[in-house]
Simulated scan of single mutants.
Amino acid sequence: MTVYQFDESNIRWHTIEGFDHLSYFIYEVDEINKGVDLLFKFSANQKIALHRHKANYRTLVVQGELRIYRPNGELKEIRPVGSYVATDAGGEPHTEGGGDQDVVVFFSNRNVADVIYEILDDDLQPIATFGLPEFKALLKAQST
């Protein structure tokens, strides 16, 4: 069977200062239906910031494997390419990252009440949040 690589040549990746090992490309911020659709790219063999999902979401791994870690660093789950997961808001705080290659994951955040992602410190205390206004601003900056 032929294995295909995800072609990201038409995607202009963006980063957020202070958030290592993470790139993004936003497709849509839907204020009426309260959703954000975007791609995240996590660096190979690295972890992004500790966080908690505060909105319902769907993920589809389109390249590589997504590794999910508990707050103590323990590997919780590996999602291979093609994995689709539908999850409600909440859940345990975690970090995520790529396997032996960068992982690209499509995220569809839905039914956003206020916050989509809550960024946490090592004591699991919120230090930053991202909601519709923040993603709207990132989308606007992305198109300049």
Rank of each mutant, 00 (worst) to 15 (best):
R52K: 15
W13P: 04
R52V: 09
E17A: 12
V29Y: 04
G82V: 01
D102M: 04
Y4A: 06
I119Q: 09
L50H: 02
I32H: 09
R67P: 01
V112A: 02
Q101H: 11
I32K: 13
F42K: 00
F6Y: 15
I32R: 08
M1D: 14
G99P: 00
V105K: 04
L138H: 02
L60Q: 11
S23N: 14
K41P: 00
S83E: 09
D100V: 06
P133A: 02
I32Q: 12
L38M: 13
W13K: 09
D20T: 08
A113R: 13
E134T: 12
H21T: 03
N109E: 13
E74S: 10
V112Y: 01
L139R: 14
F42Y: 12
Y24F: 15
L138Y: 05
G73P: 04
F19P: 05
D121M: 01
G97A: 07
A89F: 03
R58Q: 14
Q142A: 07
A128G: 08
A49Q: 10
S143M: 14
G18A: 02
F107K: 07
D7W: 11
V29C: 05
H94Y: 10
F106Y: 15
D121W: 03
S9D: 11
I32W: 04
L50D: 04
L120G: 05
T2H: 13
D20C: 07
T59E: 06
T15P: 10
G91I: 10
V115Y: 06
S108K: 07
A49R: 10
L124Y: 10
D20K: 13
R67S: 01
F106E: 15
E77Y: 09
D123M: 02
Y117C: 10
V36H: 01
N111Y: 14
T15C: 11
R12C: 11
E96P: 00
H53G: 05
L75T: 02
E17D: 15
I116W: 00
Q142P: 15
R110S: 14
Y57K: 04
N56T: 12
L138Q: 00
V104R: 00
V104K: 00
A141F: 13
Q101W: 07
V103Q: 03
Q5W: 09
G97R: 04
N72W: 01
T15Q: 15
N33S: 11
Y69P: 03
